[in-house]
Nucleic acid binder design. Structure first.
Length: 492
RNA sequence: GCCACGGUGGCAGAGUCCGGCCGAACGCAGCGGCCUGCAGAGCCGCCCAUCCCCGGUUCAAAUCCGGGCCGUGGCUCCA
């Protein structure tokens, strides 16, 4: 069984074959102008799981994820999150990295920023001008879409059907309205940022004073909007790399332009697999910074916790859109809790005298094998994370069935079930089922045990009112108590 | 107007590439039962789907083909 991935460019799902031993992966990252919301997290997370699955499958992965820290919208935040474009950029990069940590994302190999790659951008623009794909006009440089025969191949757009790319005032400088800027002359004018400003922002004119500019063969100026990804991906990976991931809303014009720039400059195919992650929608419309209808990553983690957010975002396959609702998050919480309870029950029994290495339950063992197989098949089939999660949930049922039906637990069977959770749920899906019975009982657990012991005494004495009060009190501070035949159990 | 992607139960969401194990998964919600002092958890069972519509191909279609309707996204910064 090998991994098959869908590719937006060819429209086909094909077997994944890396060019070299190390898989090269690029993700169009964020602009450092707004907090990351759940929609962004969705792209991050599916990329993360792809990364993890590739590693689990035996590949090394070189994962590059950029931050766009030169942009009008960044300037619009001057006064709010920093005193200059550069400072606002640093502020949000730090926030993104923090959000990524709290989502338990594996680190990318490199997080390049535009401000660190202006030389490479200029170099690529020069190449494009030399090769006749771009032209200078009034200190700016534009890509000539008519010079690149395959322009439009990703999005299916026809040049003549396109409306203007970029702001209206560029039109006069361009040969074709669909041409787009590679290099923009001079700095930024207040008019370009005023629409993006929030309360608390600095005066637009003052903010624009802090706009960064660089010297170039065409004079002082700034990089265009799309060239950075072409320059950074080819710089940090290769002229042709394995996988390019992006949100579905970037297909046109951003990704289309990326291909044109890169392929025109290098003469090589840009990437072998275009993976587009479907948008997160709030019932009626997509979640977006500009619409203000979002849940930030920070808030989501705060409210639901990392595991529930991950379970939620993995509960729909990456290529389809996903609808956001409180109820959907609650459902994810139930799904995750069910897995965790099963996991903890298995660990608890495996570590107890009830488990025997001579006990064998074939149906449990078969269920473990089946879960592993179903999981791998689902992941290999274009990363069907929903199905992968189902495999784990079915393993949960098998554990309960086994423990309910047998007094003597199958130690080896439980161990392999636990390993399956740790490997597939933990290493691949990035979930954490907590740990019990690993010998490192902390003070909190000891105290809870103590209170439960007192409660047992009340119960034995028939003082159920007192017992229930204790249980309610524990519930109120976040300790979930369940009575079982073997005594009370709890979960923090 | 042009381009792309979708329309599956009360919700959410697999399956569609490679037609039959789909008599439609997993889960949530709901309803019975077991267990239990109660609750929860768990187990067993049940309920809920004209798979958008019409036509075609086929022994066989949610899956393939044609037409239609509806929805979302993109064409302006956007993951």
């Amino acid at each position: 069984m090998t991994l098959r991935l869908h590719d937006t460019l060819s429209g086909e799902t094909t077997e994944f074959e890396p060019i070299e031993d190390t898989v090269t992966l690029y993700l169009c990252g964020l602009t450092t102008s707004d907090p990351a919301h759940l929609g962004h997290a969705r792209v991050w997370l599916h990329t993360d799981v792809l990364h993890r699955w590739l590693e689990y499958s035996g590949y090394d992965v070189r994962h590059v994820e950029n931050f766009t820290d030169v942009n009008e919208k960044v300037l619009a935040r001057v006064g709010e999150d920093g005193d200059s474009e550069a400072e606002v950029g640093r502020h949000y990069v730090a926030e993104f990295l923090r959000d990524m940590r709290s989502l338990r994302l594996e680190r990318a190999t490199v997080y390049p920023r535009v401000t660190e790659h202006v030389d490479e951008v200029i170099e690529m623009v020069e190449t494009l001008v030399e090769k006749g794909y771009a032209y200078e006009s009034a200190g700016s440089v534009y890509f000539d879409v008519t010079s690149f025969d395959e322009y439009g191949k990703l999005s299916g757009q026809q040049i003549d059907e396109l409306e203007t790319q970029g702001p209206e005032d560029e039109l006069a400088e361009k040969r074709h309205p669909a041409d787009f800027a590679l290099w923009k002359a001079d700095g930024v004018t207040p008019g370009e940022i005023v629409d993006h400003q929030h309360d608390g922002a600095a005066d637009p004119a003052d903010a624009c004073e802090t706009a960064q500019t660089w010297d170039s063969p065409w004079g002082e100026g700034r990089p265009g909007w799309h060239i950075e990804c072409s320059a950074m991906s080819t710089t940090h990976l290769a002229d042709t790399f394995d996988v390019h991931v992006a949100g579905e809303d970037l297909v046109f014009p951003h990704n289309e332009n990326e291909i044109a720039q890169a392929e025109a400059a290098t003469g090589e195919p840009f990437t072998n697999h275009w993976l587009h992650v479907g948008l997160l929608e709030t019932g009626e419309e997509k979640m977006s910074s500009s619409l203000g209808n979002f849940y930030t990553v920070d808030e989501a983690i705060e409210t639901f916790g990392t595991d529930v957010v991950r379970t939620y975002l993995l509960s729909a396959t990456y290529s389809e859109k996903q609808t956001y609702s409180e109820a959907a998050l609650d459902e994810a919480a139930e799904r995750f809790d069910r897995m965790e309870r099963g996991y903890q029950r298995a660990v608890g029994v495996a570590d107890s005298p009830d488990a025997h290495s001579k006990s064998v339950d074939q149906s449990l063992r078969a269920a473990v094998d089946e879960a592993q197989e179903q999981f791998a098949q689902a992941m290999d089939d274009d990363l069907n994370t929903r199905e992968a999660l189902s495999a784990l949930l079915e393993l949960t049922s098998a554990i309960h069935e086994h423990l309910d039906a047998h007094d003597a637990a199958d130690y080896q069977g439980l161990r392999s079930a636990i390993e399956t959770y740790d490997d597939l749920g933990g290493s691949v899906l990035g979930l954490s089922f907590g740990d019990v019975g690993d010998g490192h009982v902390d003070l909190t657990a000891e105290l809870v045990e103590l209170i439960l012991e007192l409660r047992e005494q009340e119960r034995d004495a028939g003082n159920y009112g007192r017992a229930d009060d204790l249980r309610d009190e524990l519930q109120a501070i976040g300790v979930e108590v369940h009575d079982t035949d073997d005594g009370p159990e709890f979960r923090l």
